[in-house]
């Protein structure tokens, strides 16, 4: 495993800036999720770390050593692609042994390592199978085994679960996290699924339009997005325009303490699940306009008496047209300065 350091890494294709001067530190043995929408540059960044492409500017370091110009063959940053990319003409054993054979390891060592890693990925007995005979989950495990058997310095996962059905995806997430912990791998997971990033990663880096907007723990990212852009991307957020004066932000939902003492225009953000709906007490009055049952929670659209609407998710049951009191804790309201 290795500590990865990106210093001012940029990438442009045909004058189009894909990645814009990224700085990032990924600790030894850490699982970091790179979260962003399609086209944000996630896979490009993964390829730069893997050495499958070179940055237009900036340096990439492993344990302090500059590897920017080290070829992918010698970098030991192994990538697992979304569609597995198992070699279709090779058996499971041959696929896993591919990298070991390329290193000219002795046959006995290859056999032993392949056997061991097949135990780790819980697929012993499938070594003579061809990829087309494997299920999606098995293919993903073999792709992981093929990467992990080389004991890479860095394991890079490019949306590895997006082709799997929901149940399989959940079990594969657990499997990868446990594998990463057992093998103590430094791991970068690329995903556009925020739930996947939050569940699996110790830290999440949000990449929007080629810029790293925030690198933080899942909890901080969810509760305290650094700016409106991040909050919008993560979803399930209500925004209220308002004014800050004398350390108080005032909006349609009420007044909330802020650290700013000057006067400025601002926008407040509160997550759906931080909005409290009550029948008797609250900051402001509203009326249930719409509801959607979603299993554990019910989503309510509330028309505020002071004007505007908000979304709330809670377990309590209300019916359409019910008058409700709406409130939100000070710490749940994030306030962003508007230009």
């Amino acid at each position: 495993m290795a500590r990865i350091t990106l210093v001012g890494v940029a990438k442009a294709f045909n004058d189009k800036q894909i990645l814009d001067r990224l700085d990032l530190d990924i600790e030894n043995g850490e699982l970091l999720a790179l979260l962003g929408p399609s086209g944000s540059g996630k896979t490009t960044l993964l390829k730069l770390i893997a050495g499958l492409d070179t940055p237009s500017a900036g340096r990439i370091k492993f344990d302090g050593s500059d590897v920017t110009l080290v070829s992918t063959r010698h970098r030991q940053a192994i990538i697992v692609f979304q569609d597995h990319c198992l070699f279709p003409h090779l058996t499971v054993k041959e696929n896993i042994a591919f990298g070991l054979r390329a290193r000219n390891e002795p046959r006995a060592t290859i056999d032993r390592k392949v056997g061991e890693i097949l135990e780790v990925v819980q697929l012993p007995g499938r070594q003579n199978s061809l990829p087309h005979a494997l299920s999606g989950g098995e293919k993903q495990r073999i792709a992981l085994a093929r990467a992990c058997v080389l004991k890479p310095r860095v394991l890079l996962l490019d949306e590895p679960f997006s082709n799997l059905d929901v149940n399989l995806r959940l079990s594969m997430r657990e499997f990868v996290v446990s594998l990463q912990r057992v093998l103590k791998l430094t791991c970068v997971l690329v995903t556009h699924d925020k739930e996947e990033a939050f569940v699996m990663a110790e830290r999440v880096a949000v990449l929007l339009d080629g810029r790293l907007e925030q690198v933080d723990t899942p909890e901080n990212l969810y509760d305290r997005p650094k700016n409106k852009k991040v909050a919008e991307f993560l979803g399930e957020a209500n925004f209220f325009p308002g004014v800050v004066a004398d350390g108080v932000f005032t909006c349609a939902l009420g007044s909330f303490a802020t650290p700013w003492q000057d006067t400025r225009q601002a926008v407040g953000m509160v997550r759906y699940d931080n909005v409290q709906l009550g029948r008797h007490t609250g900051n402001t009055l509203g009326k249930i306009k719409d509801k959607v049952f979603a299993g554990r929670y019910t989503f309510y659209k509330v028309a505020l008496a002071a004007g505007g609407e908000l979304m709330a998710s809670c377990k309590e049951s209300f019916t359409l047209g019910d008058a409700v009191y709406v409130s939100c804790a000070d710490h749940a309201m994030q306030v962003y300065s508007t230009p």
């Binding site: 893997a50 063959r73 940053a77 692609f81 990319c85 990298g99 390329a102 080389l150």
Partner: peptide, 10 residues
Amino acid sequence: FGDVGENLGA
């Protein structure tokens, strides 16, 4: 496949 092969050290 080419990228994967080289990435695996071939």
